[in-house]
Design a protein around this nucleic acid. Structure first.
Length: 264
DNA sequence: ATGACGGAAGTTTTCCGA
């Protein structure tokens, strides 16, 4: 059983890469971020032919999220779009429950706000959004013992997630305020799946398109899977797949993949 | 200090991302 997340920076552009990647990596559930398309343009047909169902929540130009699941599993249920009680024009969260081998799995796929710069209006929105997400998740966690929150968090856990921590000290994705928010999510009873498996140093999930950043491994780890205790018990591996970043016209993000075994 | 790269909108230039 594998669950993955990937910010694909335009599904219009990246659909062939998503299909190629799924052919090589037939994960059970894949959360996508930055669709950058309206719902009527979502390529449900092409994904179905590749063996995947989808639940999508898009908008024009920006944002947009989806959950893909293999067609041999029952479709997702209890679908929720965005954060209940938090009025938001931006399509950033899609959640669903999947009846999978190993028991019911609640999947919350999210594209966290970028935040632009500390002190900006967008930063304030990011903080409000994070407050709302945490409040809602606290409630979700009481109902769903097997829950994964995954996506593009746009936050580094600490300096180990940053290629040049000195230069990027207290800049966006690296501020104390953002990291405290991320720790507050962990404090709800979640675990950073990648760090359960002692990833190699300089494990990043995003690299700037500029300055040959990928080739130089100048990146950030901002794409995460946070899992509950029950899922931690089942987790057997987690890795960042850098291969798609080597494609022609790649996304700036790499997929992160979690492997789960059967419950004890 | 700035822009660098890439996508979208859409029309020549701007906004946004991270």
């Amino acid at each position: 059983m594998q669950i993955a997340t990937w910010n694909i920076n335009s599904l219009n552009v990246r659909l062939p890469q998503v299909l190629d990647w799924l052919a090589d990596n037939p994960v059970d559930v894949l959360a996508l971020q930055e669709l950058k398309l309206t719902d009527d343009k979502f390529p449900a047909e092409a994904l179905a032919q590749a063996g995947y169902r989808a639940i999508w929540f898009g908008q024009k130009t920006y944002n947009g999220v989806a959950l893909l699941s293999r067609i041999d599993h029952p479709a997702g249920t209890e679908v929720v779009k965005n954060i209940p009680g938090f009025d938001d024009e931006q399509a950033r969260v899609v959640s669903a429950s999947y009846a999978l081998p190993g028991g019911p799995l609640r999947v919350v796929g999210a594209y966290f706000p970028n935040g632009q710069a500390p002190g900006s209006d967008k930063f304030a929105y990011k903080m409000r959004w994070l407050d709302a997400l945490r409040g809602w998740l606290r409630d979700e966690l009481t109902r769903h013992p097997q829950l994964v929150l995954l996506g593009d968090f746009n936050i580094t856990f600490d300096d180990a997630d940053v290629w040049d921590a000195e230069a990027l000290h207290e800049t966006i994705h690296c501020t104390s305020a953002e990291r405290e928010q991320l720790q507050a999510l962990v404090g709800l009873g979640l675990h950073d799946a990648l760090r359960l498996f002692e990833p190699p140093p300089k494990s990043y999930s995003w690299w700037d398109y500029r300055d040959l950043a990928f080739r130089r491994n100048r990146g950030l780890r901002i794409d995460h899977l946070l899992i509950t205790d029950a899922l931690k018990q089942r987790a057997s591996a987690c890795h960042i797949d850098r291969a798609p970043r080597k494609n022609e016209r790649p996304s700036d993000h790499a997929p992160v993949v979690l492997t789960l075994g059967a419950p004890q």
